[in-house]
Amino acid sequence: MDTMETNKLRIRLLRYGDEDSFKQLYLEYYSKLQGIGKRFNFKFLTPEDFVQETFIKLYKSKEQLKEDVLLDKQIYVICRNIILNHLKKEKRSISLVGEDLIGMEHQENDQDSELMDKKKKELSRLIKQLPEKRKEVFTLHKIEQYTYEEIAEITQLSKKTIANHIYLANKFILENLKKITL
Protein backbone atom coordinates (compact mmCIF):
# COMPACT_ATOMS: atom_id res chain seq x y z
CA MET A 1 0.00 0.00 0.00
CA ASP A 2 1.37 3.45 -0.90
CA THR A 3 1.56 6.45 1.43
CA MET A 4 -1.70 8.06 0.34
CA GLU A 5 -3.63 4.78 0.63
CA THR A 6 -2.22 4.24 4.12
CA ASN A 7 -3.10 7.84 4.97
CA LYS A 8 -6.71 7.38 3.78
CA LEU A 9 -7.06 4.16 5.76
CA ARG A 10 -5.75 5.77 8.97
CA ILE A 11 -8.12 8.71 8.57
CA ARG A 12 -11.09 6.41 7.94
CA LEU A 13 -10.26 4.40 11.06
CA LEU A 14 -10.03 7.59 13.10
CA ARG A 15 -13.35 8.82 11.73
CA TYR A 16 -15.02 5.59 12.79
CA GLY A 17 -13.62 6.02 16.29
CA ASP A 18 -11.11 3.17 16.22
CA GLU A 19 -9.39 3.48 19.61
CA ASP A 20 -6.32 1.43 18.63
CA SER A 21 -5.64 3.74 15.68
CA PHE A 22 -5.98 6.78 17.90
CA LYS A 23 -3.63 5.30 20.54
CA GLN A 24 -1.08 4.40 17.86
CA LEU A 25 -1.25 7.93 16.47
CA TYR A 26 -0.87 9.36 19.96
CA LEU A 27 2.24 7.29 20.64
CA GLU A 28 3.68 8.10 17.22
CA TYR A 29 3.29 11.89 17.49
CA TYR A 30 3.51 12.61 21.22
CA SER A 31 7.26 13.33 21.36
CA LYS A 32 7.25 15.18 18.02
CA LEU A 33 4.51 17.55 19.17
CA GLN A 34 6.09 17.94 22.58
CA GLY A 35 9.30 19.00 20.82
CA ILE A 36 7.40 21.68 18.93
CA GLY A 37 5.84 22.94 22.16
CA LYS A 38 9.26 23.16 23.82
CA ARG A 39 10.38 25.73 21.25
CA PHE A 40 8.05 28.30 22.80
CA ASN A 41 8.39 30.01 26.15
CA PHE A 42 4.92 29.89 27.67
CA LYS A 43 4.09 31.46 31.00
CA PHE A 44 1.00 29.39 31.81
CA LEU A 45 1.16 26.08 29.91
CA THR A 46 3.64 23.26 29.34
CA PRO A 47 4.47 21.55 26.03
CA GLU A 48 2.54 18.53 27.29
CA ASP A 49 -0.56 20.69 27.59
CA PHE A 50 -0.33 21.50 23.89
CA VAL A 51 0.06 17.84 22.97
CA GLN A 52 -3.05 17.00 24.98
CA GLU A 53 -5.02 19.86 23.43
CA THR A 54 -3.91 18.80 19.96
CA PHE A 55 -5.18 15.26 20.42
CA ILE A 56 -8.43 16.42 22.01
CA LYS A 57 -9.01 18.75 19.06
CA LEU A 58 -8.05 15.98 16.62
CA TYR A 59 -10.53 13.60 18.24
CA LYS A 60 -13.34 16.16 18.36
CA SER A 61 -12.83 17.13 14.70
CA LYS A 62 -12.00 13.67 13.33
CA GLU A 63 -14.96 13.84 10.91
CA GLN A 64 -13.39 16.91 9.29
CA LEU A 65 -10.08 15.22 8.46
CA LYS A 66 -9.29 15.28 4.76
CA GLU A 67 -8.25 11.99 3.17
CA ASP A 68 -6.31 13.70 0.38
CA VAL A 69 -4.06 15.60 2.87
CA LEU A 70 -1.37 13.77 4.82
CA LEU A 71 -2.46 13.11 8.38
CA ASP A 72 0.79 14.39 9.88
CA LYS A 73 0.31 17.74 8.13
CA GLN A 74 -3.20 18.01 9.57
CA ILE A 75 -1.94 17.17 13.06
CA TYR A 76 0.83 19.77 12.84
CA VAL A 77 -1.62 22.43 11.65
CA ILE A 78 -3.91 21.71 14.61
CA CYS A 79 -0.94 21.94 17.01
CA ARG A 80 0.34 25.14 15.38
CA ASN A 81 -3.06 26.81 15.62
CA ILE A 82 -3.41 25.87 19.28
CA ILE A 83 0.04 27.28 20.04
CA LEU A 84 -0.66 30.51 18.11
CA ASN A 85 -3.96 30.98 19.93
CA HIS A 86 -2.29 30.52 23.31
CA LEU A 87 0.52 32.90 22.39
CA LYS A 88 -2.04 35.57 21.51
CA LYS A 89 -3.92 34.97 24.76
CA GLU A 90 -0.73 35.20 26.83
CA LYS A 91 0.32 38.40 25.10
CA ARG A 92 -3.08 39.94 25.75
CA SER A 93 -3.06 38.98 29.43
CA ILE A 94 0.54 40.12 29.93
CA SER A 95 0.03 43.39 28.04
CA LEU A 96 -3.13 44.13 30.04
CA VAL A 97 -1.17 43.71 33.26
CA GLY A 98 1.58 45.93 31.84
CA GLU A 99 -0.92 48.60 30.81
CA ASP A 100 -2.39 48.60 34.31
CA LEU A 101 1.07 49.04 35.84
CA ILE A 102 1.97 51.83 33.42
CA GLY A 103 -1.34 53.52 34.18
CA MET A 104 -0.61 53.41 37.90
CA GLU A 105 2.88 54.83 37.38
CA HIS A 106 1.52 57.74 35.37
CA GLN A 107 -0.99 58.58 38.08
CA GLU A 108 1.71 58.63 40.73
CA ASN A 109 4.17 61.03 39.10
CA ASP A 110 3.75 63.50 36.23
CA GLN A 111 7.56 63.82 35.87
CA ASP A 112 7.71 60.11 35.07
CA SER A 113 5.03 60.71 32.46
CA GLU A 114 7.15 63.38 30.76
CA LEU A 115 10.18 61.10 30.84
CA MET A 116 8.13 58.24 29.38
CA ASP A 117 6.92 60.53 26.56
CA LYS A 118 10.51 61.54 25.75
CA LYS A 119 11.57 57.88 25.65
CA LYS A 120 8.65 56.96 23.39
CA LYS A 121 9.50 59.80 20.98
CA GLU A 122 13.16 58.78 20.91
CA LEU A 123 12.24 55.13 20.37
CA SER A 124 9.96 56.14 17.50
CA ARG A 125 12.77 58.21 15.95
CA LEU A 126 15.20 55.27 16.20
CA ILE A 127 12.72 52.83 14.69
CA LYS A 128 12.32 55.17 11.70
CA GLN A 129 16.10 54.97 11.16
CA LEU A 130 16.05 51.19 10.71
CA PRO A 131 16.32 49.70 7.21
CA GLU A 132 12.85 49.22 5.69
CA LYS A 133 12.49 45.44 6.06
CA ARG A 134 14.01 45.45 9.57
CA LYS A 135 11.63 48.24 10.60
CA GLU A 136 8.67 46.25 9.24
CA VAL A 137 9.68 43.06 11.07
CA PHE A 138 10.49 44.89 14.32
CA THR A 139 7.18 46.78 14.25
CA LEU A 140 5.18 43.65 13.54
CA HIS A 141 6.83 41.74 16.39
CA LYS A 142 7.51 44.29 19.12
CA ILE A 143 4.69 46.77 18.61
CA GLU A 144 1.89 44.82 16.96
CA GLN A 145 2.91 41.63 18.81
CA TYR A 146 2.81 39.19 15.90
CA THR A 147 4.58 35.86 16.33
CA TYR A 148 7.51 34.79 14.16
CA GLU A 149 5.17 32.40 12.34
CA GLU A 150 2.68 35.15 11.57
CA ILE A 151 5.44 37.50 10.42
CA ALA A 152 6.84 34.74 8.19
CA GLU A 153 3.45 34.39 6.53
CA ILE A 154 3.13 38.16 6.03
CA THR A 155 6.68 38.89 4.82
CA GLN A 156 7.64 35.54 3.25
CA LEU A 157 10.87 35.59 5.32
CA SER A 158 12.27 32.62 7.23
CA LYS A 159 12.02 32.56 11.02
CA LYS A 160 15.83 32.79 11.27
CA THR A 161 15.82 35.93 9.11
CA ILE A 162 13.05 37.39 11.25
CA ALA A 163 15.00 36.60 14.44
CA ASN A 164 18.10 38.22 12.93
CA HIS A 165 16.17 41.39 12.00
CA ILE A 166 14.74 41.65 15.51
CA TYR A 167 18.13 41.04 17.13
CA LEU A 168 19.81 43.71 14.98
CA ALA A 169 16.98 46.20 15.53
CA ASN A 170 17.11 45.67 19.31
CA LYS A 171 20.89 46.04 19.30
CA PHE A 172 20.72 49.28 17.28
CA ILE A 173 18.00 50.78 19.48
CA LEU A 174 19.65 49.83 22.78
CA GLU A 175 23.05 51.16 21.70
CA ASN A 176 21.57 54.46 20.62
CA LEU A 177 19.35 54.85 23.67
CA LYS A 178 22.42 54.48 25.91
CA LYS A 179 24.11 57.36 24.09
CA ILE A 180 21.23 59.73 24.76
CA THR A 181 20.72 61.45 28.07
CA LEU A 182 17.03 61.95 28.64
Rank of each mutant, 00 (worst) to 15 (best):
Y29A: 03
K38P: 00
T46R: 11
V97F: 13
G98I: 15
F138G: 00
D20H: 08
D112M: 13
I94E: 04
E28G: 02
E53H: 08
P47A: 04
K32V: 14
N176L: 11
C79P: 01
K66A: 06
D2Q: 10
E105V: 14
T139L: 06
F138Q: 01
G98M: 11
G17H: 08
E105N: 13
I78N: 00
E132W: 13
E108L: 15
P47Y: 04
E28Y: 12
E28Q: 07
K133Q: 11
I78L: 08
R92E: 10
I151Y: 00
R39V: 11
K62R: 15
E90S: 02
E144K: 14
N170P: 01
S124P: 04
K142F: 11
S31H: 12
Q64K: 15
L13W: 07
L115Q: 05
V69G: 00
L87K: 06
L58T: 03
S113P: 02
L27Q: 10
T54L: 07
K128V: 15
L126V: 10
Q111C: 12
Q111R: 11
L14R: 06
A163K: 11
T46I: 14
K62G: 00
L140Y: 05
A163H: 07
K88A: 03
K179T: 04
A169C: 06
N164Y: 08
I173D: 00
I83D: 00
S31R: 14
D117I: 15
E114I: 15
F172K: 04
E90A: 06
Q145Y: 14
Q145T: 14
C79Q: 01
S95V: 13
K171C: 06
N170Q: 09
H141W: 08
L130T: 09
D110M: 12
K120Q: 08
N7D: 04
K159C: 03
Q107T: 10
Q129V: 10
D72A: 05
Y59P: 04
A152F: 08
G37H: 04
T139N: 03
N81R: 13
L168E: 05
I11H: 01
E149V: 13
L115G: 01
T181F: 07
K23T: 15
I166R: 05
E63Y: 12
I56P: 00
E108I: 15
E153W: 14
K89M: 11
E175L: 11
Y167L: 12
L65A: 02
I78W: 06
V51C: 00
L70N: 03
S158R: 11
K179A: 07
I162V: 10
L123E: 03
D20C: 08
G37M: 04
S31K: 15
T161N: 01
E153L: 14
Q145M: 15
F44V: 12
G98C: 09
K159A: 05
I82Y: 00
L174N: 08
D117M: 14
Y146C: 05
T161I: 07
I173F: 05
D18W: 05
N176W: 09
E114N: 07
D72S: 11
